[in-house]
Simulated assay, not measured.
Amino acid sequence: MKRRTALAYLAATAVVSPMVHAQPSEIRPRIIRFGYGLNENSNQGRAVKVFAQEVERLSGGKMRVRAIGAAALGTDIQMQQALIGGAQEMMVGSTATLVGITKEMALWDTPFLFNSSAEADAVLDGPVGRKVADKLQDKGLVGLVYWENGFRQLTNNKHPITRLEDFQGIKLRVMQNNIFIDSFKSLGVNAIPLPFSELFTALETRAVDGQENPYNTILSSKFHEVQKYLTITNHVYSPWIVLASKKWWDTLNAAERKVLLDAAVKSRDFERKDTREEAARALAELKAKGMQVNELSPAEANRMREKLTAVHASIADQVGRDLWNELQAELAKIRNRS
């Protein structure tokens, strides 16, 4: 009798206890792997952190960004392919490395295209910038917003660049992008395409003599430790672009997409302000750390422009004359307003 009572009790508790002790299951947040090339303490790293915080805030914790910097997920090109294949969700990287995927991205590689950051903002955030970014969707990528990398400057270990002839024979690392390669070859440079992740070692071992990047990147990447001369050229305005995998983007609902777009705009505004403030500090710090800095004279800059005329024409042919003319019309409108 006692045994039957005990069995009955066990049977009852087996049914009842799950109801008594059950806890509401927690909804796991959607984890977004966001890759970038620079280190966590760079302007890029700080802006990714702002994006991550904003995504978590706007989604009420339902979406969380796992930021992975220092090229730990690969080079820009490798991450782009991971996004296209759906193996990674998001990244930020150079528009220059996208030219092989979407030819219209070559617009932003045009030497001496913008006279100021304000002009760049107006074009990149305007109809031309949006049109170019939207071209990525056919290739498996979604362009959200453009960030600022900044005007690019030259560094090298051989001698100061004060005139066009000083470029002759310098082994210069350039991005893996035909326009950059052609532009520097036309100036007499031995242009060597290398991924950014390999650049410091190449400079340190003298596999290349120099490189070109904005002040912020030169400082945060410690290129001053392996480079002696810095020449202010402002030869190209270099944007970054925040990208999402289209395969992944298509799985999101409208509310989730809005969270990401709103957070991207917030991070863009922060990043541009932060980058511009840092650029002035970075130049002063590079001088203090011993780099010899000189500015290319307007006359020599004009000589460079003349050498690059053919590059402009080739870019116009590559992206299409209609888009090129639309860009030039937009720039003319902006300059007339200022």
Rank of each mutant, 00 (worst) to 15 (best):
P214Y: 04
S186C: 02
A6Y: 09
P127W: 02
L83T: 04
G210L: 07
G86K: 06
A313V: 12
Q292D: 12
Q328C: 01
R64S: 10
L243D: 13
A14C: 06
T309V: 15
T217Y: 02
L98P: 09
D125P: 00
K139P: 04
R152S: 14
K307T: 09
S338F: 02
H235G: 11
V16Y: 05
D166A: 06
L58D: 01
D250W: 04
V226Y: 04
Q211G: 12
Y229Q: 13
M91C: 08
R272M: 02
Y146I: 10
A301N: 06
P18A: 07
E330P: 03
A22W: 01
A313R: 09
G85D: 13
R33K: 11
N190H: 04
P195L: 02
L286K: 06
Y229F: 15
R64P: 08
N253Q: 09
P193G: 14
V128Q: 03
I101V: 15
A22Q: 10
L107N: 08
Q53V: 00
G37T: 04
N190L: 07
Y237S: 09
T162C: 02
I101N: 04
A264S: 15
L172P: 12
L141R: 00
G210Y: 01
S267N: 08
K222C: 06
P214S: 12
E54H: 05
F184L: 10
